[in-house]
Nucleic acid binder design. Structure first.
Lengths: 160, 160
DNA sequence: TTCCTTATATCAGCGACTTGTATAAGTTGC
DNA sequence: GCAACTTATACAAGTCGCTGATATAAGGAA
């Protein structure tokens, strides 16, 4: 059956907006800025990136990202490294501590989410679980056509 | 009874975290604070609320919410009104202009989302569409057990 | 080298949040 | 009906993270 005209983007935008509010209320990143958490997650997911790329992707200015990276570095959550191919640039990487921070944060959110999910009918949980891979692909798309890895320096990826 | 192995909350937390990043990058609310947008959406969805309730729900302090409501009121997006049942309290309502602001913001996000969704396989779009009602119920749960409407003043709800 | 572009860092300023406190209204006890 | 306490919102001072403008350093072209 050809159900709906596929999808109502307006409703999706509203729904995802509420998801944002929900995630904000869980594991409140009041101790750490939203952009900081998001940037760490981006680095974890997509690997080392340059400052400017991070700034564009996170929707902040380059000075803001420089400042943020300095903060993250000071706290040991990320680190700067040189980019052999370009002496002007630096690559930012998430550290082990940074990954641990992300993991801990997600664990806290997961606990709260589990409690909420328990209040949903099984069918809803299944629908959410079924949509998760699709959502991951959706969120991955923003990197696809507009940004490619900056020639990751530590990995021995002999690609050309 | 073992909980449902149905869903991996950790993975869900990570996935929803990426959704947050995505929505942040779309329709960047750089002109208006995240909390402002979220608060307007909350008012639109759940109706008039008191300042303190809004503060708790949005995860900010009460003074911050007072400040925010003043800002919203100054820009005509929300308005304060008295609460007949309690002279100390005020109820905050979203105005027509506030709803328009939300609608416009969602329309912009919807446009971007549509472009992204076009890059997904049809099955992914269907999965997301199918999960949307479940996500809406999930995000609605946070209001359920902890907060009830503060006796909405303008509506003629002959409550019982 | 000289000029231009690119990438990051620094500086000044502002906006949105925090804690602490003040004012006003409701509630209880006598 | 007044005193004391609680509750709800508003105000004040301070901090943090952002923006815009600008400086410094490195790569590329002539």
């Amino acid at each position: 059956m050809d159900q709906s005209p596929e999808i109502d983007e307006l409703e999706l935008a509203a729904g995802l907006g509420r998801v944002v509010s929900l995630m904000r209320s869980l594991a409140l990143p009041r101790d750490r800025s939203m952009t900081a958490v998001s940037t760490l997650a981006t680095l974890e997911r997509f690997g080392p990136r340059r400052v400017t790329e991070l700034a564009v992707f996170e929707g902040v200015t380059q000075p803001a990202m420089t400042q943020l990276v300095s903060r993250l570095e000071r706290e040991g959550l990320a680190e700067r490294g040189p980019l052999p191919a370009d002496g002007r640039a630096v690559v930012v990487r998430v550290t082990t501590a940074g990954r641990a921070e992300l993991a801990g944060r997600r664990a806290a959110q997961a606990r709260d989410l589990a409690a909420l999910l328990a209040g949903l009918p099984a069918g809803d949980r299944e629908a959410i679980a079924a949509a998760l891979p699709a959502l991951n692909r959706l969120t991955g798309l923003t990197h696809g056509p507009g940004a490619r890895p900056p020639a990751d320096p530590p990995t021995s990826r002999s690609d050309g």
